[in-house]
Amino acid sequence: MSDLIWKTLSSEYLFKDNWLKARKDRCERADGTIIDPYYVLEYDDWVTALPVTEDGKIILVRQYRHALGEVCIELPGGCVDASDAALEDAIRREMLEETGYAFETVHYLGRTSANPSTNANLMHMFVATGGKRVQDQDLDQNEEIEVLEVTFEELQQLIDEKRIVQSMHMNTIFYALRYLDKLGYK
């Protein structure tokens, strides 16, 4: 398999901003073929969770997503910050900020990639249980988030109606439902 790994001969940043960097690489395959240019987008790693309250409700969020021009139903989550000591700290912080809920347990489900051919970051997936509202939302300046509490049946209906379009959040939902033994196949 190591013969499939490319060697990076050079790398040049074309754009750098707060949460996005774009670079152009010059690469060489094991057979000597040169790939030039190869563009890579660098984002911070992301975290997301399927949060379940102590009374068995699922917490979802609704927010406007400008790239699509739509209000989307999603899971809470966001970027891993430099101040986060661990991935679990990042998802606990994001859930608290976006929803006002804190959770007894947080279980790591794995990682996924939005597009491993162009994106250099990962989404880390969690399931959180025993949630309780402990504060008001503490949103970033550009965030307007509506918190939704739904039953497992209502989540299934949202899935059936294809109302959750964020593909990595659907991955998290799948792994979380599997972990919680709530996954039914039709």
Rank of each mutant, 00 (worst) to 15 (best):
N171Y: 09
K182H: 09
D55K: 04
Y13D: 07
Y108T: 02
V165A: 10
R93W: 09
I173H: 08
G32K: 10
G184Y: 15
L148S: 04
V61L: 05
A90D: 04
A86V: 09
N171C: 10
D89Q: 03
I34M: 08
I34N: 14
E12D: 15
A114I: 12
V40R: 11
Y13A: 14
I145H: 04
V106E: 09
A22N: 08
Q156W: 03
D160M: 06
T151V: 11
I35V: 15
F103S: 03
E97N: 00
L9R: 13
E144W: 14
D81C: 01
I59L: 06
S10N: 13
K162F: 15
D140W: 14
Q137K: 09
L155S: 01
Y39M: 08
R178A: 10
L41I: 07
R65S: 08
L87V: 01
Y185A: 15
F15K: 01
V150S: 09
I58P: 00
D44N: 11
R29S: 07
I145N: 12
H66C: 08
S10G: 12
L41H: 03
M95H: 05
V127R: 02
R92P: 02
F152L: 10
K7R: 13
E146G: 08
K57M: 03
G69F: 09
W6M: 11
L75W: 03
L87G: 02
S11L: 08
K186P: 15
F174D: 04
E161Q: 12
A102F: 04
N115K: 13
A102W: 04
Y108I: 00
T112I: 10
D25M: 05
L177M: 02
T99N: 00
R65E: 11
L155G: 01
D84V: 06
A128K: 01
T99W: 03
I159L: 15
F174K: 13
E146V: 10
E42K: 09
I35K: 06
V80Q: 03
D136W: 06
I91Y: 02
D89M: 01
I35S: 12
H107Y: 11
L9Y: 14
V150P: 04
S117M: 15
I91Q: 05
L50P: 04
E70K: 13
